[in-house]
Design a protein around this nucleic acid. Sequence first.
DNA 1: CCTAATCCCTACTGAAACGCTCGGGTTTCC
DNA 2: GGAAACCCGAGCGTTTCAGTAGGGATTAGG
Lengths: 151, 151
Amino acid sequence: MRVTTRGRYAVMAMFDLACRRSAEPVPLKQIAEHQGLSERYLEQLMAPLRRAGLVQSMRGAQGGYTLGRPAAAISVGDILRVVEGPISPVACVTDPLACARTDGCVTRGIWSRLRDRMVDLLDSITLADLCQEAASEALTRGVDGHARSLS
Amino acid sequence: MRVTTRGRYAVMAMFDLACRRSAEPVPLKQIAEHQGLSERYLEQLMAPLRRAGLVQSMRGAQGGYTLGRPAAAISVGDILRVVEGPISPVACVTDPLACARTDGCVTRGIWSRLRDRMVDLLDSITLADLCQEAASEALTRGVDGHARSLS
DNA sequence: CCTAATCCCTACTGAAACGCTCGGGTTTCC
DNA sequence: GGAAACCCGAGCGTTTCAGTAGGGATTAGG
């Protein structure tokens, strides 16, 4: 029940990209360094993101990436679906052919409900939300010294 | 972001066990056949379930398994945690040591919230709920002919 | 006592996925 | 022309997945 590094890194990169409100394209190298990720690996994640229209790329020197849509119009769910495939705890929820006993399988209802919850949340969080969160957190951190939330 | 077969099969087996309201222990062979699972594989899943007290076992001829607690006191989350480890979309949510940048990582908040949602739901569904669901579904199916819910 | 049924334990294994690295190629600005 | 960047596909070591296999221990019934 884990999100892979593909999903996590992609969200981190997109978040990084969203926070810089510059029209200038940002080179991957900067993002990778800033987020502490392998540039070469991250490169592989950008390809599907570009094909899906979540980012735009400029080639050549002074090139880089920009968001393909406003940050408020890109959700975490959007990103995850692109790099990890459908958000679903089990295959049979999205693809009924994946399991012979789809019909009348009681446990299927569990995974279906779980999927709905996950999708609801992930689609409700946009990159704009994350940027705002980061900004306000940086503020309270600066004021309080080192505020932390305990779980 | 998938539940493995360990989790799915364990829930299926526990559900099967919960539906038979007999005090007699149920042999694994029956459960496996009834649910269409490999007996040998299922056997491996029962070991941790037994150690966790979710089932009790009787050895020898006429032996088998019974629930270790009332069906209403066993949640899907309980079962998953036993056979799959902590319910968490990323390691750093349960184990802060798993990631260097735990503090001040914005994306971590996403996974934390996702985790909470998942846990909430999975802990709210008990085996008793599933049995009731199965019973009422079998009823409507019998009356309506072949009722299905569309997503 | 013997035997069949049943749970129990450990090891192994083929296949797939994960998490990258690597070697190139192409485009574009200066 | 050269450096900076994106682009593409291959390969690779490790881990996990999803079982299979081979026994051993325990118990009811005959």
